[in-house]
Design a binder for these strands. Structure first.
Lengths: 126, 126
DNA sequence: ACATCTGTACTAACACAAATAATACAGATG
DNA sequence: CATCTGTATTATTTGTGTTAGTACAGATGT
């Protein structure tokens, strides 16, 4: 922590960018289960963002079972992030569904889709 | 026209829902090039939505080269929708990119992705 | 020519969510 | 006990989506 990039001019809310960034670091293994997250105030100061916004992101991540917080102690990566992983997979499936649906509108074949995935997969592998 | 479903309680803006719905009908071939769209006021009345919101959607669709409008004449599906198709394909590619990126976070393999696409493709084919 | 349709432009008002700001409280810790 | 932590609360500002009302110019059919 914390190589998180926040774009205050983006149309996507800051607290969502925070959620996505932290979630990515956790799922990618950059943060181990049980590891402490920066305090609400510290991260707010570091990113020059209001503490309330940080807390909003933390609250959402806790709702997703990705982190757990306790007054006086701090916030920590959940010991078991598998439930959150499952929910995340569901979202990926939904994204693919949307992509397939849109591809049909463009008369893009299934082969083209898998080819694109293959190309993108290999192109970002190393 | 116009089997468009608008959910006023959705978090996605009404004008975006309109754009998506009309774009889908055009790309799917449900509306032929040159075919007239309902007038701003008529569609507003039919959907019980403010005319300004309809116009906002039409303006966006015109920006995307999907339709063309002229004062006094009306709005029509563009004669050549290929440029819009190209832009749409770009968006699909971006969606796939995001899906691949997220899949990596979940340790989902490329084979699993292509399998999901295949299943979704066949499941919505008829 | 006239009435009526069309898209377009503009202002004002309202609703809602995001974000900021400033406190305050309770639990944990050294 | 001082100081950190998360959490809750209220007020304010800001931006965007939406509605409402009005107006203007071009096209069309009678």
């Amino acid at each position: 922590m914390s190589n998180i990039r926040i774009d205050v001019k983006s149309r996507t809310p800051i607290f969502e960018q925070l959620c996505a960034g932290i979630r990515e670091q956790i799922l990618a293994g950059a943060m181990a289960p049980g590891e402490p997250l920066p305090s609400v105030r510290a991260l707010a100061c570091e990113l020059a963002i209001n503490p309330n916004t940080i807390q909003k992101a933390y609250a959402e991540l806790e709702r997703q079972k990705l982190i757990s917080s306790a007054p006086g102690r701090g916030s920590f990566v959940s010991d078991d992030i598998r439930p959150a992983m499952g929910a995340f997979e569901e979202r990926i499936l939904a994204d693919l569904r949307a992509a397939v649906h849109r591809a049909r509108l463009c008369s893009i074949g299934k082969e083209k889709l898998t080819e694109l995935i293959d190309k993108e997969w290999e192109g970002t592998k190393p």
